[in-house]
Amino acid sequence: MSLLPQRPPIKNAPVVIRTRDVSKRFIIRKDKSLKERIVNFGRSKQHKEDFWALRDIGIEITAGTSVGLVGANGSGKSTLLKVIGGIIQPNEGFVERRGRLAALLELGAGFHPDLTGRENVFLNGSILGLTQQQTADYFDSIVAFSEIGDFIDTQVKFYSSGMYVRLAFAIAVHVDPDILLVDEVLAVGDEPFQKKCMDKIREFQQEGRTIVFVSHSAGQIADLCDRVIVLSHGKIVFDGETEAGIDALRESFGS
């Protein structure tokens, strides 16, 4: 019951992301200040708590697929996305990628409130890996997509939250990524803009870009993904077809 439009078939699609035995341990320290560290010196075991956020994750993602990472809260899906993006380094194992990567983890993370929209477009473009020249070339198209209009020369602290996110999204989709990591950011803006985002994602899929989603919305996953990986307590409990994956997700909530 796929709602997806027919994707162009890709012959011998290459693997673009592969992780080998990736494990990530989180240590939660309860004593953050020097005084507490000294007072608790030698007993530091009691003031630490560690757990495996990810355990022996080995996945391969081929070009042109859209993969949904799902799981209950705290199952490690966002951590896995960050490890794939290189934002967090795993304690064990490694991640290999090829192609240009863009991460939509939080829209407008690099925005500076005191700078104008225009200045922020160049800054954010650069953060996402565009050269100044490329940003200048895309500039009109970015402004048009964001529907910001004349406000582009206003400081972004005066933007409404919708404008802020629209501008950020517009920059991100112009980066021309081969791999796009998306974390729960598609539920932004008003309904027409959300539709625009979805259309853009579909266009990306048509162009053979690889997309990795983290989402809580089973509907969105069913709508967009052709492969689902279900995580539970840092381990993969299901990896395969979307429909079966959503059933597996529901099951994992119960456990």
């Binding site: 162009p8 890709i10 070009a63 490694f94 991640v95 290999e96 990628r97 090829r98 081969d178």
Partner: peptide
């Protein structure tokens, strides 16, 4: 060839890069 196929062929020729370069 489609855009998607072109992209796949280009990616096929790229070497893998390790994301964690702390070594």
């Amino acid at each position: 060839t489609s855009i998607a196929q072109e992209r796949a062929d280009r990616l096929n020729s790229l070497p893998f890069q390790k994301s964690a370069v702390s070594g």
